[in-house]
């Protein structure tokens, strides 16, 4: 097999290229070029939904005389970004040996506030105090941005005399389960700033060009020439990412972690595929395939067989009169066997 998997587009290339155009503590902007859109999108999806972080998952309310309902406060607590440094060493609670939660799979935070003055009091994320044996000194501490004067996100307000006392258990998780575990706060993903590929259909009143502001990446790519013909073979190959974080993971770490998650997925697939192959010798049903009665009755097993029906060992194309494709019963086809070419 003499081809270069790195050459993700038809032009001869040295594989994907990355250019960082801006990077600070909240965002990293970079361009991924010479890659296919499917890979770029995988990276985007994985960064959004599958990077493990830590967030409050269990709340035990001891005393709540505030105006807010318990479950309302619990939900707000869940959404507070917590520092995820060292999250690799924290176990998923479901994988842990302990009964419910322990220091290996959770971080405990306590909140106790009472308004003793005669003015309303703010309860903020800084008031959440981590306790217990932690993996390191930062894992699970609330993120406090400079913009909030060192207080962090506002949780609630208390009137004089009101009190809130609760304990939180923060656990490891991914955003696929709940958005509170999202590593980035947002990801910008953009390609083809001049819409040369016509993947977008711009709404306009009189002229789309005048009414839509140009993309910030418009200068990076050649604008279309006057009267240029539409290129039917063109595919997108430059992708502009803007990865923003709320502070739980540094933005550049989100990118590297995202790639790591894809790698782990692939590695586990390769591992599992090795097991499938164990039963390969003649038995293509694999070691754990369901119990088919010889595998002859394609229609009975439709849900599990290949798209071409014919549970047996016939060629994928069916062949002969037996080749009843799934299209056989459509209103257009009539009976599969009597249906000409199919």
């Amino acid at each position: 097999m003499d081809y270069d998997p790195m050459a993700m587009d038809e032009i001869e290339s040295k594989g994907p290229v990355i250019k960082i155009s801006q990077a600070d503590t909240v965002r990293v902007k970079f361009e991924l070029s010479n890659a296919d859109i499917s890979f770029a999108n995988s990276l985007r999806r994985v960064m959004l939904a599958e990077i493990p972080t830590i967030a409050i998952d269990l709340v035990e309310i001891e005393d709540n005389s505030s105006v807010l309902a318990d479950e309302f406060i619990a939900h707000r607590l869940g959404l507070i970004p917590l520092n995820a440094e060292g999250i690799e060493e924290l176990q998923y609670s479901r994988d842990c040996d302990c009964e419910e939660y322990c220091d290996h799979c959770s971080v405990k935070l306590t909140l106790h506030a009472r308004c003793t003055g005669d003015e309303n009091m703010q309860v903020v994320a800084r008031d959440l105090v981590p306790s217990g044996d932690r993996i390191n000194r930062v894992l699970g501490t609330p993120i406090i941005n400079e913009s909030s004067d060192g207080l962090g996100p506002l949780i609630m307000k208390l009137r004089p005399g009101q009190e809130i006392k609760l304990q939180c258990i923060a656990k490891k998780g991914i955003a696929k389960e709940h958005a509170k575990w999202a590593a980035p706060s947002a990801i910008g993903f953009e390609y083809d700033p001049h819409n040369k590929l016509h993947h977008l259909d711009m709404w306009y009143e009189t002229d789309a060009k005048l009414e839509w502001p140009p993309s910030e990446y418009a200068d990076w790519e050649e604008p279309p020439q006057e009267g240029e013909r539409f290129d039917f073979n063109a595919v997108p190959d430059r992708f502009y990412f803007n990865v923003e974080t709320a502070g739980n993971i540094p933005p550049d770490a989100i990118v590297t972690e995202g790639i790591k998650v894809i790698q782990q997925k692939l590695a586990s697939m390769i591992h599992d595929l090795g097991e499938t192959e164990g039963g390969e010798n003649g038995d293509y049903n694999g070691p754990r395939s369901p119990e088919y009665n010889g595998g002859g009755d394609g229609w009975q097993d439709q849900g599990f067989t290949t798209p071409y029906g014919n549970g047996g060992n016939q060629s994928a194309w069916g062949g002969g009169a037996g080749g009843t494709t799934p299209y056989g019963t459509t209103p257009y086809g009539g009976a599969g066997a009597g249906n000409g070419g199919w």
Partner: peptide
């Protein structure tokens, strides 16, 4: 096992 070969292959 997260990958499975479907019968009829």
């Amino acid at each position: 096992q997260r990958v499975r070969l479907l019968p009829g292959s």
